[in-house]
Nucleic acid binder design. Structure first.
Length: 218
DNA sequence: GTTGTCAACATGACCA
DNA sequence: TGGTCATGTTGACAAC
């Protein structure tokens, strides 16, 4: 079934198949369009059809390809002689084999990247869930602080506090929490100075160090 | 009949 | 300038 076509027959066939099919680029053409191959005129002959290489030939070529993917001229002739193929067939086989190899590598690389991407997406999902939980925790904490603040303010008559807006009778106590600038832990417990300093995130220092030392010299 | 595989081919780019 | 390579296409063939 997979009988190879003898080289001479193959060459004759090739010459028949290529009849009138070589590039006929005119003088002014910069690019030629790919032309369809002329249908075979000798379709009746069984040997004129394209045949697959035998298993033994393919195995031999695979072994050779495994050793070296490039094909020097001498090696090509030698290989062709070993398995009874035309050197051109060997060259074609190597070209196609390299293309298949590259496709396979690309596919494997794609699968690896896809797998990594999927893992990152899952991780992102977990982190987002974590953020939601933490936000919920923070919200509850702020709520209990707000309630505590109301209790303290109620006990003190609600007018003190010393802050500018604190004495407004119509002002909502919760409004201060909705603002970005107000920090409950600082404003409520009267340790402003120290806590203010303590709440400067570490990266602020590192950033400051970077600014102070723009050339990275320590 | 459709689809996948593969040998063969076409073509442009590159190099010695 | 010829050989080789990468890439894309074609057509034969097998499997379904």
């Amino acid at each position: 079934m997979t009988k190879a076509i003898p080289s001479q027959v193959e060459e004759e066939l090739a010459s028949l198949m290529n009849f009138g099919m070589h590039s006929q680029r005119t003088e002014g053409e910069t690019r030629t369009r790919r032309r369809r191959r002329k249908p075979k005129a000798n379709g009746a002959e069984g040997e004129a059809r394209k045949r697959r290489l035998t298993d033994a030939q393919v195995e031999f070529l695979e072994m050779s390809f495994g050793k070296e993917r490039k094909l020097e001229s001498g090696r090509k002739v030698h290989l062709a002689g070993e398995i009874g193929l035309d050197p051109k067939q060997v060259a074609v086989w190597f070209q196609n084999r390299r293309a298949r190899h590259k496709n396979k590598q690309l596919e494997e690389e794609y699968l690896k990247l896809k797998s990594a991407h999927d893992a990152i997406v899952v991780e992102k999902c977990h982190l987002e869930n974590e953020v939601l939980k933490l936000k919920e925790k923070l919200s509850k904490a702020e709520e209990s602080i707000r309630k505590l603040s109301e209790t303290v303010n109620g006990a003190c008559g609600g007018g003190g506090g010393g802050s500018g807006g604190g004495g407004e009778s119509g002002g909502s106590p919760t409004s201060s929490f909705s603002t970005v600038t107000y920090h409950p832990l600082v404003g409520e417990f009267g340790v402003d100075g120290e806590v203010d300093f303590m709440y400067i995130p570490e990266y602020y220092f590192s950033n400051y160090m970077d600014w102070g030392n723009p050339y990275g010299i320590l």
